[in-house]
Nucleic acid binder design. Structure first.
Lengths: 248, 248
DNA sequence: CGATATTTTGACCCGGCTCAACCCAAGTGG
DNA sequence: CCACTTGGGTTGAGCCGGGTCAAAATATCG
């Protein structure tokens, strides 16, 4: 059930790969030491459920590696992804023990977790933690609102292009490669998951990707690897302003 | 430009109508006194712009009365509403001085505002303020995610029904009337604004409202006033589970 | 009362959904 | 080694929900 290879059981917070991007990034050595004593790790295989909608969650924490999807399902089975969490993103909502959506591991995932009660007590006593959490929540809200524009007003082609632009941007800032010849990155999602992300069907996702390939906006060495030769052209296909893309 | 009737210039925080729902709701008498000295009010007419996307905002605060819409516009003019703020909701993002969307007064609006720098300093020194703000931001994120499901997966009819259900719920809890014979409420939005909220066109909004009337799910004494005789029927039309509606 | 904005209604069309077939790579077991 | 399955992914044909364009009906307001 759990991949042993992911089981690096305990890691010092100070040496952690997400140490300066996660909730804990404003913590000093002292608070970090405290976190060290109460955190624990848990690993999940692709497709494995982390929490189900409506369920009580007794833990919350950070994505250390891998990708987690959050999604809502209607009574008749229609599904919409509402969150896509990468390394250093925070999963779980303090003060709200009931999960309003499913969280599922998209890739192999490792989480750094805290007991809910303990974390909430710690939050109260650690302003820097709370401040960082507020910041991250505001960022997520911004992302959610961009996403709403995508879902409500963009065409299928624009949706696909927008999604690829998000991944390209992520890849560029993560690998901090300054793209001598376009951006390369892997699609972490299946076509079905992309459809759930974008409010489309698999077929439409596939067709629009084909169309973008045909137009030379993107290249796919294989179905899961993508190259963007001209980022501005991609933004253009996404219906976005050609500027606000890469500046941080 | 500003409606004089809205100009009750200064009100003691302790007597404020939104005192126990807004950001300040966890503040004690001491913190409240401090807020009293630095807050100021500003009023807006329907349709008046509060901040424009891309603009620097030097203030932020609470909606005291009225309704404010937040919306994003694409280069070609397509618009999507991404937030709808009522009395006690917080407007503006601490630590992010550039507004990523337009904020517009939908009805006559009165805001209780703070200078950005002063508020951010206050936040740092007042954990209860920050805690409340975090809570409110998490709630907004939840609302945004419900909204994403609506935009991505619901039919036009379901979208309209969902929106009316939100308003009915608000009305029921605000007027704390236990609906002896259905819920009554006013639509704060024009058809165009509803269309922007729901990712539809005006025409489709109009048609689907007509259809819901014809099916007896809702009644419209006039174009802006609505009665819901059977809330469960409305939830059903919204494609939602018939339970999770009214419980808080 | 005209004049302007908002809402409704109608006719038509198209983008994306549905249904169905097919392709391809990776297992799996005989 | 090959036959068979399984899970993505792609492609095609046809349809329909919601968009577009146009006009009528209904407020709202000097």
């Amino acid at each position: 059930m759990m991949t042993p290879s992911l089981r690096k059981q305990h890691e010092r917070c100070a040496d952690c790969g997400i140490r300066n991007r996660a909730v804990c990034s404003y913590c000093g050595p002292q608070e970090l030491g405290l976190l060290d004593t109460i955190k624990f790790y848990r690993s999940y295989d692709p497709g494995q459920e982390i929490v189900a909608a409506g369920e009580q969650t007794d833990f919350l924490g950070s994505v250390v590696e891998g990708v987690v999807s959050l999604s809502k399902t209607m009574p008749d089975g229609r599904r919409q992804m509402v969150g896509l969490m990468f390394a250093s993103d925070f999963v779980g909502r303090p003060m709200r023990p009931i999960a309003p959506y499913d969280a599922v591991a998209v890739t192999p995932v490792r989480l750094c977790l805290f007991n809910r009660g303990r974390f909430e007590r710690l939050l109260k006593d650690t302003p820097v933690l709370e401040k960082r959490l507020l910041e991250m929540t505001l960022d997520e809200l911004d992302a959610a609102r961009d996403w709403m524009l995508l879902l409500g007003r963009k065409s299928a082609r624009e949706k696909i292009a927008s999604f690829l632009a998000i991944l390209a941007r992520r890849a560029a800032s993560a690998d901090n490669v300054d793209a001598d010849d376009g951006f390369f990155f892997d699609l972490p999602l299946t076509r079905e998951q992309m459809a759930d992300y974008l409010g489309l069907t698999i077929e439409t996702v596939s067709r629009q990707i084909t169309a973008l390939k045909k137009d030379g906006v993107v290249e796919f060495p294989d179905a899961r690897r993508c190259r963007v030769p001209d980022f501005v052209a991609l933004l253009d296909a996404a219906g976005e302003d050609s500027d606000g893309g890469m500046i941080d």
